[in-house]
């Protein structure tokens, strides 16, 4: 059994899932130093669907990687509920990802030697209170394709398997870095619908990076990045259904 760690289990009373305070990220040193983030402070409410927008190099992916526990901030703090992620050891960060975080990537990152169902099982086997792989695949509408290998699935289907894999553990937050980037508009919308459903039915916070500005319409909150800083934060009063979105 894995060692329990001090990442707080319950939602914090203030209702924030993440609190970033002056987060800076510098790659390299001296002249070659690149400032990817220059003091980002943000508050992301529990259960929100948040869209991160911004041009390439604006720092949105770096921010996502840091709050997702894939990378570390050079300066500043990131609180996940009451836990300071910047203070966690490598093993604890792994555990944090294992228990609380779901990832969806532009290039799906499925294991080619495992079927759709097995790719989901990969996660359910190590999660604490997962749904069954069948449930997860049902959630993304792929119940019938569960015995297929990645090579036998279309791009959209592969991405839906990746989402099923990410949500099967009932994550606290779901990070999506350009999940529709490699898909055509119509397939992309299907994927967005799944993400919206996950947000609504499972109550997971969703952080979604996209190039397609139109996607912002389905978010609770839209954060724009520019040059390593937060340019603006907007709250949508009314959210648009993904089927209304196109790009």
């Amino acid at each position: 059994m894995r060692r329990r760690i001090a990442v707080s289990e319950t939602a914090s009373p203030v209702g924030s899932v993440f609190k970033a305070e002056g987060v800076t990220k510098v790659y390299g040193t001296g002249r070659a130093a690149v400032h990817a983030l220059r003091g980002v402070s943000l508050d992301i409410p529990e259960g929100d669907l948040v869209v991160l927008l911004g041009p390439s190099g604006s720092g949105k992916s770096t921010f996502l990687n840091i709050v997702g526990g894939l990378d570390r901030a050079t300066e500043g703090r990131v609180l996940f509920r009451d836990t300071d992620l910047t203070a966690l050891s490598d093993a604890r960060l792994t555990d944090y990802r294992r228990r609380h975080v779901g990832f969806v990537f532009q290039f799906y990152n499925l294991i080619p030697s495992l079927t759709a169902e097995e790719n989901v099982e990969l996660v359910t086997e190590i999660a604490e209170d997962p749904m069954t792989p069948a449930e997860a695949l049902d959630l993304v509408g792929l119940a019938k394709r569960r015995t297929h290998f990645p090579a036998e699935l279309s791009g959209g289907e592969q991405q839906r398997v990746a989402i099923a894999r990410a949500v099967a553990k009932r994550p606290t937050v779901l990070f999506c870095d350009e999940p529709t980037g490699a898909l055509d508009s119509q397939t992309g919308v299907e994927v967005l619908k799944v993400l919206r459903d996950v947000n609504q039915t499972l109550g997971a916070s969703v952080l979604l990076i996209t190039h397609a500005a139109a996607t912002a319409a389905m978010a609770d909150q839209v954060i724009r990045f520019s040059d390593g800083q937060v340019a603006s934060v907007e709250h949508n009063e009314t959210k648009v259904d993904p089927s209304q979105i196109s790009w």
Binding site: R97, R98, R99, F103, N109, I111, V123, I126
Partner: peptide, 9 residues
């Protein structure tokens, strides 16, 4: 890398 991201040690 995918496995590590998914929380594999």
């Amino acid at each position: 890398a995918s496995l590590r991201v998914l929380g594999f040690t």
